[in-house]
Amino acid sequence: MSNFVILVILLGLGYFFGRYYESRHYKSIIKRENQYRNIVVIASRIPPVSEKPDSTILVMGSVVISVDYFKKFLASLRSLFGGRIHAYESLLDRARREAILRMKQHAHQLGADKVFNIKYETASISKNPRGGIGSVEVLAYGTAFIPQQ
């Protein structure tokens, strides 16, 4: 029974802190996305033909986000019933957008105005035995183009 009480406490903590951090993170993501909109990211591998070629450099941004207890619980309930895991969808959405933002920040610091050939890598770290809380790493990288003066 004490297990059950601990479970309820952990679920409550997970829910309230998880919700708080998530909404705070989204606000910050949306704000910075507007801030860095001038740096264009393009998935194409082929850069524009130019008479004055830019100098290029690899830029990347990576982020690690942990799943909270509540999300984990919801996901493992989903593993019994099937269906979309909404709780993880928002987690990964945040991670991808944050990774791009960090990559853009990197590009911005180098004076780039666009990033080509961008790619994502996703890895789940702390893939520990059952019961452990998982976390996810998203890495975004691409080739930044710095205009020649």
Partner: peptide, 15 residues
């Protein structure tokens, strides 16, 4: 069943 789910869900099921 419990092999598939986390400790937390296992607690709910077994309790």
């Amino acid at each position: 069943v419990l092999g598939e789910s986390s400790d937390a869900v296992a607690t709910v099921i077994s309790d």
